[in-house]
Amino acid sequence: MVSLSKSTKLGELLDAYPFLVDFLPSISPKYQRLKNSVLRRTMSSRATLERIAEMGEMSVEDLIAAIQAEVAKQTGDPKEARKEALKGILRDLHEGVDLEILRQRFAELVKDVSASEIAEIEQSLIDEGLPEEEVKRLCDVHVDVFRHSLDEQEVPRPPDGHPVHTLMVENRASENIMAEIEAIIGEPSTLGGHMGELGALVERLGEIEKHYLRKETQPSPRLEAKGMSGPSQVMWAIHDDIRAVLKKANAQIKEG
């Protein structure tokens, strides 16, 4: 399937889905011109969906959404269409499309999709060779889209001693340490007098390594046993990013 983004070429799209020649005029009369084979051939190699959207006097987001829906309807494979839509979002992330627009596209894409299917789609992208860094970027959009709805839901309460409960307690402890660090660095004029305290806090925060090892050795193997290596790959990459930040912070504090 063709990955849909603002830079997708018209010719690439119509080669894959010829039925769109008849579909496009149904969403904008401006596209009636595309039924002219000479004009269509002229535009095919040059016109992107961004340009086609302008031609139809509609947003590229609305155009992509309409095409995705029609492709899913015609091909009978909505999951595959959603996967290609995620690829399009990633491509547009690369090209600097406004993050708010991409959030809206992602929210529209997943509004009727279960969390497990989203995970399956993201896993399939990884299996196809999507770089880890790209998965991290997609997850940032994913989390941002769901943050509001998650904030409105009741926080799960696993029993004391459960591995998930332990991880949650450790997260809250890390947040408290970060709040203390932010309070110190938020006052640059007095920062010099608190370097010792700051160093001690960063050292305490470094104990998050135990938390990371717990995550990497408890839930991750179980996910991977079910064929879901993607969450672990992203988690490890984020852990490594934070480890690097902590190492740099420690070095800077020691240098004064």
Results as ranks from 00 to 15, higher is better:
R91P: 00
I121M: 14
I181D: 07
S229W: 08
M228K: 09
A47H: 02
M1V: 11
E154S: 06
E209P: 03
E108H: 14
L167S: 10
K30P: 01
V164F: 13
M235I: 06
I253P: 06
E133P: 01
K79G: 00
I52P: 01
K79F: 00
V2M: 08
E132Q: 12
I238E: 15
I184Q: 07
E197I: 10
P159E: 11
V164N: 03
R243S: 04
D77T: 12
V71C: 12
G56H: 07
I185S: 07
A119V: 14
A173Y: 07
D151G: 07
M43V: 03
R82D: 08
Y31N: 03
A81P: 01
G76D: 06
V38L: 10
D77A: 08
S44Q: 07
T190C: 02
L138A: 12
I67Y: 04
A173V: 10
R204P: 03
L99F: 04
V113K: 01
D98F: 03
A173Q: 14
L191N: 06
H194D: 04
E70C: 03
R214V: 04
A65I: 07
L125I: 12
I101C: 01
A16V: 02
E154W: 01
P163F: 14
G56Q: 00
L99E: 14
I27L: 08
L86A: 01
P78Q: 04
M228S: 02
K83Y: 04
E154V: 06
P29E: 15
E95T: 00
G193H: 09
P29T: 15
E100H: 14
S174V: 07
H194Q: 13
H211P: 01
Y212W: 07
R105K: 12
I242S: 00
Q104T: 11
T166M: 14
E54W: 08
L24R: 06
K6F: 09
V2W: 06
V110I: 13
P18F: 13
T48Y: 10
S189E: 15
L191P: 04
R46I: 06
F19H: 11
V21C: 00
E255H: 06
R82L: 05
L102S: 12
R103D: 08
D160H: 04
D140T: 13
P219Q: 12
Y31F: 14
R41H: 10
P156W: 09
R214Q: 13
S220R: 08
E128P: 02
I181N: 08
R147H: 11
T217Q: 14
R222I: 08
E182I: 08
T8C: 02
M1Q: 02
M55K: 09
D92L: 05
S114T: 15
R46C: 00
F23Q: 06
E154L: 05
Y17T: 05
E57G: 03
V164I: 13
E224V: 13
V141E: 02
D92M: 11
I238W: 06
R91D: 15
G129D: 10
E187D: 15
F19K: 01
E84M: 13
D15P: 02
A65S: 15
S59F: 05
L213F: 15
I126W: 11
L167F: 12
D77S: 09
F19L: 09
I185D: 05
P158M: 05
L93T: 06
Q233L: 12
